[in-house]
């Protein structure tokens, strides 16, 4: 690639951006055994997990939200108890909106959440990203 100030950097930045890409453990160079657990493993949250909600197309919220929610929580409860109180701070949010006003995605794939089903049964995992776009 060439910069707009005319400098040829001669590099290609291709990376596999597949959202569910599984990576292997690479070789570790260290002064001794080096194997420590994740500081955010799901077990640290008991029956709960972290769930991200990305309101795509609405720049009012500079980043996706991160919630701690029970795995068994229904999507309807998640919407009413966590998602709406966070997003209604946007002056353009309408109290009449329901999940049907949005298109949904889960971890980069189209998704149709059933309000009565639990997050876990809907495939929402620890640190998953739920994407919502206003229809």
């Amino acid at each position: 690639m060439t910069t707009d100030t005319g400098i040829d950097t001669g590099i290609d930045t291709g990376i596999d951006t597949g959202f569910n890409k599984v990576i292997e453990r690479p070789e570790i160079r260290s002064i001794g055994a080096y194997d420590f657990p994740s500081r955010s493993a799901q077990e640290l949250y008991g029956d709960d997990q972290l769930v991200h909600v990305w309101y795509d197309g609405n720049p009012w919220f500079v980043a996706a939200a991160c919630f701690r929610a029970p795995k068994a929580m229904s999507f309807g409860d998640f919407w009413a108890a966590l998602l709406v109180p966070y997003h209604e701070e946007d002056p353009d949010w309408l109290a009449s909106w329901t999940p049907a006003d949005f298109e949904w995605g889960l971890d980069d794939a189209p998704w149709t959440p059933d309000e009565g089903a639990s997050l876990a049964s809907l495939g929402v995992g620890h640190k998953s990203v739920i994407r919502m776009v206003k229809k």
Partner: peptide, 15 residues
């Protein structure tokens, strides 16, 4: 558009 990336390592997702 917000840039979202993630990989799964030893059973856990990282963003």
């Amino acid at each position: 558009t917000i840039c979202q990336r993630s990989v799964v390592f030893e059973g856990e997702r990282y963003n």
